[in-house]
């Protein structure tokens, strides 16, 4: 088992755990953090392959993902804030307006 394979498994594991957290946890903010975890898992796999193949493009890709994640969180948290102002709760189970 070499480095690449090991790190790949770690990244897949992180991704799965993040996805699990999205399904399992109730708190909206915790769900956001799980999404960040998923991104991190993906980043890890990208970096692994970039390092292995010696390509800078992979690193550039990772960098871009950083920026997108930041922009995303900049929007997501105000949205959560507004939701909470409306319903006074962080429980994802209370937001079922998409029903039907």
């Amino acid at each position: 088992m070499d480095k690449t394979q090991f790190l790949l498994w770690v990244s897949l594991l992180l991704f799965s755990i993040g996805l699990l957290g999205l399904i399992v946890r109730r708190n909206l903010l915790v769900m956001l953090m799980c999404m960040e975890l998923m991104l991190n898992g993906v980043n890890l796999s990208l970096v692994t392959f970039a390092q292995r193949g010696g390509s800078v493009e992979g690193a550039v890709m990772v960098f871009l993902i950083f920026i997108v994640a930041a922009a995303e969180i900049a929007i997501a948290i105000p949205i959560v804030l507004l939701l909470v102002q409306h319903r006074r709760t962080l429980d994802a189970g209370a937001y079922t307006d998409l029903k039907g």
Partner: peptide, 17 residues
């Protein structure tokens, strides 16, 4: 089929999985 759409985000995420 409409019974699938409960509005629960968790359920939707499960469908994604």
């Amino acid at each position: 089929f409409a019974a699938m759409q409960t509005g629960s985000l968790h359920r939707y995420a499960l469908y994604v999985v």
